[in-house]
Structures are given as C-alpha cells and as structure tokens.
C-alpha cells in the first residue's frame, strides 16, 4: 500500500478529529473539566442536521447553518443547568454528571431515532465521492480539502477569539482565576456559558462532517469522545494549534494502521496516544492553566 496516500488521507481524517477535539479542548482550557458527553453532543448535531436534510431536502451544509444556533442554545442551557451546579460540587462531579448525560443522550437517540445508522454522504453529491487524481495511487478527495479548510478556519477562529478579542481576554482571565476575574467584573458563569455554547456548536459542526464523511448511529458518541480526547492529549493540553497537530497525528496513525490491516486502524491510534502519555513532552508543554 502507498504510504504517501495513507498520510494524505490521514491528514484529512485528522482534520475531522481536530474539529471534534477543539470544543473539548476549549471547555477543558476554560473550566478545567472534561465533558464526557462531548462525543454524544457531536452526534446530536449529526442527528439534527440529518433530520433537517431528510425533511426538507436541502443541502446538509445549509441545514448545518440552521442547526448551529440550536447547538449554541443547547450548550448555553447545558452550562446553566447541569454544569454550573456540577462545578460547585468539586472536581469529580462534572465527570459524573457529563457521563450520566452521555448515557441519557445515547439512549435518547436510540429511543427517538431507532438504532439505524445514517449517512449524509449521498446528500452532498460528488463532493463526498469525487477527488483529484494526482497519480495512480494518490488522490485528493474534495471532502478532505473542505474538512481541512473548515477545521483550520474553526480552530483559527477560536484561536483569534481567545488571543485578540475582549471576550477572549475574559475567557483567559476566567481560566486563570475565576474568583479574581469576578472581582474585576467578569462573571465566571456568563463566560462559562458562552464558552460551552461555542464548544457545543463546534461539536455540532464536527458531527455534521462525520455524518457527511462516513456514517453515524446512536452509539457513535463515545468513540468520537475518545478520538477527540486523544487528539487533545497528543497535541498537548492547552493549545488549539497543538490540538490540530494532535488530530492529524491521530488521523495519520489510524490510516497507516489501516494500510497494514483495517483491524489495526483504531488500535494504532490508541497506541500512539498511550505513547504520548509515556513521553514526558506532553507534561512539559502543558501549562498548568491552559490558554494562559
């Protein structure tokens, strides 16, 4: 098998993982919690886009634009109801509540949408199947390029927001010290709510692209959470560009593993992640307070 082709396809797959991971990274950076329902929220986005596309026949991309405000509202409500209260209960409680939420979401999907697996690939025409053939065994899929562009745009947009806007400064201040930020007039709860809203919206985008690129079902969420988490850790905590790199490393590891045997694909990704845990680099580059 062609290793160059595997790496190229891995970069596109990795863009999807980076897109999945940036919301997880954002919530962790600002609130210091891992949202264990993140993968299921991505699947919620995928289901909503699928429903809109299925009912109206419009392009999934336009459907995604309609779904995004809903995802923002879901994120905002999530923080205001479950997460805000969890944060007051200590560092372990958010894990327990988001894990419980993940179980509720997965089985809710199962109840509402049946266990069927769906794909939006056929709804975007040649975009999902077409590619530029460079050589006999190297091709650049259209969708891969779109994914890379969207992923760089979303992560770049988040990075710009954090670094260069007033809201970004408030987020960074809250991440460093919510109490002191509160003293100078930045209410942590409002910052958290907006950060979670943005994170859930990016999960929705990632879910829609997952649905277009391959397929999804009610139980797809946990795997997406694991891939997103691996991308965050491989890339080094607290850095959005690191998350992009981590996603791409994970994607390339999976596609190279798949060229040996399709069964090795996900396992190779896990092994690269475990390797990243052993290598002290991750610890060294991870600042104690992310985004600071």
């Amino acid at each position: 098998m062609n290793i160059v082709n595997a790496i190229v396809q891995g970069i596109f797959l990795g863009s999807l993982y980076a897109l999945l991971a940036c919301g997880l990274s954002l919530i962790f950076g600002v609130m210091r919690i891992i949202n264990l329902a993140h993968g299921d929220l991505a699947i919620l986005g995928a289901f909503l886009v699928w429903v809109v596309t299925d009912k109206t026949g419009i392009s999934p991309f336009i459907a995604l634009l309609l779904v995004l405000p809903v995802m923002l509202a879901v994120g905002y409500a999530l923080q205001r109801t479950v997460l805000a209260r969890s944060l007051r209960g200590g560092p372990l409680v958010p894990l327990l509540t988001t894990f419980g939420l993940s179980i509720v979401l997965q089985n809710g999907f199962l109840q509402v949408f049946s266990p069927d697996v769906h794909s939006l690939g056929s709804n975007v025409g040649t975009l999902s199947t077409g590619s530029w053939k460079l050589t006999s065994d190297l091709s650049i899929p259209y969708l891969g390029v779109v994914l890379l562009v969207v992923s760089v745009a979303v992560l770049g947009g988040l990075h710009y927001t954090l670094r260069a806007t007033a809201f970004g400064r408030e987020m960074r201040a809250t991440a460093q010290d919510p109490d002191t930020a509160g003293l100078v007039g930045i209410p942590a709860s409002a910052i958290y709510a907006r950060a979670v809203a943005i994170a859930v919206a990016t999960a929705g985008i990632a879910g829609a692209f997952l649905a277009i690129r391959s397929s999804f079902g009610p139980a797809s969420g946990p795997a997406q959470l694991i891939f997103a988490f691996e991308a965050v850790i491989i890339g080094g905590l607290g850095s959005l560009w690191g998350t992009l790199v981590g996603g791409i490393v994970l994607g390339v590891a999976q596609t190279i593993g798949a060229t040996i045997d399709p069964q090795y694909s996900i396992l190779t990704g896990h092994l690269v992640f475990l390797l990243a845990l052993v290598v002290p680099r991750v610890k060294a580059t991870a600042p104690r307070k992310a985004f600071a």
Binding site: I34, P94, L95, L225, I226, I233, L267, L274, L277
Partner: peptide, 28 residues
C-alpha cells in the same frame, strides 16, 4: 504507572482508552 500521572477527567478517559485498546487486541 501510565495513568496515575493524569488528573481528573484525563485519568477517566485515559483508563477508558486502555479498555478500548485491550478489547481491540482481544478481537485480533
């Protein structure tokens, strides 16, 4: 040795990945 250096949610998902990896190894 691997996961106790992780904290909070990282430990939670870290052990989960190990479970997934073991399951995949058994499948092979």
């Amino acid at each position: 040795l691997l996961v106790l250096q992780l904290k909070g949610g990282q430990l939670a998902v870290g052990t989960w990945v190990i479970a997934e990896a073991l399951g995949l190894l058994i499948v092979l």
